[in-house]
């Protein structure tokens, strides 16, 4: 009966990534095998140099494995040419970065429209979809603001809207709360949980256990390998936020 189960959203097998730094061979991923199902909320943890960032880059099609297989929605994407990789990033992946990475001279709407620009969508559709995405992250009233006119939390919301706007297979967030204070961090994690409940697959790379606590599955990396992979009952970020407000 296992044959009839839908293919995993992400399936990696014996994934290796080796860098050549001068004479030195640096093994960032030393044979990683795992699957991630549609609709899950996964935290990828590990100390720096553990390979979690490389894993994330490979999953995001920013980097390519030296060996092994990476199937996204059942399609092998590990060895695609650069143009195809770009298309896959555009359609299937939504990135959220620690430093938000917004274009400073473009307003919130323009930033959210960017992925659709590369998808070749017409202006009118870009505008409506960007407005909807911004409304969804709670920034319906800040669409015309430039990044500098927004707080850190708001900027990260714009970045999340940008990541969502092409309806990707999954959100990849690399230390999404690393540049935010605790309260705003809770805010962002609550947003991720809300999106996840709506069916969005979320993968968060973090070294903070506090952040990982909001995920339902935690994968730990060390020396380029998965050392533990556990399911857990996630902490509810919205409830934590409410507690915080009461305490204040």
């Amino acid at each position: 009966m296992a044959d009839l189960a839908p293919p995993a959203l992400i399936a990696v097998e014996n994934l290796e990534r080796v860098y050549q730094m001068g004479d030195e061979r640096v093994v960032a991923l030393a044979g990683v095998t795992t699957q991630i199902q549609q609709g899950s909320f996964v935290a990828v943890m590990g100390p720096s140099g553990s390979g979690k960032s490389t894993f994330m880059n490979v999953l995001g099609c920013l980097d390519q494995p030296s060996a092994g297989s990476y199937r996204l929605k059942g399609v092998e994407v590990g060895q695609l040419p650069a143009t195809e990789l770009a298309r896959t990033r555009n359609r299937e992946i939504g990135f959220v970065f620690q430093q938000f990475n917004l274009l400073q001279r473009v307003d919130a709407l323009g930033n959210v429209e960017l992925p659709m620009l590369y998808a070749g969508l017409p202006k009118r559709e870009r505008r409506t979809r960007a407005e909807a995405a911004l409304a969804r992250v709670g920034l319906g009233d800040r669409m015309r603001h430039l990044p500098l006119q927004l707080s850190g939390g708001q900027q990260q919301r714009v970045a999340i809207a940008r990541a969502l706007v092409n309806q990707p297979a999954c959100l990849l967030a690399d230390e999404p709360t690393g540049a935010l204070d605790s309260r705003t961090s809770l805010d962002i994690m609550a947003l991720f949980q809300a999106l996840n409940r709506e069916g969005v697959t979320v993968i968060v790379v973090t070294h903070e256990p506090d952040v990982a606590a909001f995920a339902s599955r935690v994968i730990r990396f060390r020396d380029g390998k998965i050392v533990s992979d556990t399911e857990q009952t996630p902490r509810d970020a919205a409830a934590a936020l409410a507690e915080w407000s009461e305490a204040a």
Binding site: A82, T83, R89, F95, N101
Partner: peptide, 16 residues
């Protein structure tokens, strides 16, 4: 460079 990286991440092809 960072902007280029971001554009690539959201789907800009080398040709773009």
């Amino acid at each position: 460079t960072k902007e280029i990286g971001l554009r690539m991440a959201v789907g800009a092809r080398p040709l773009d």
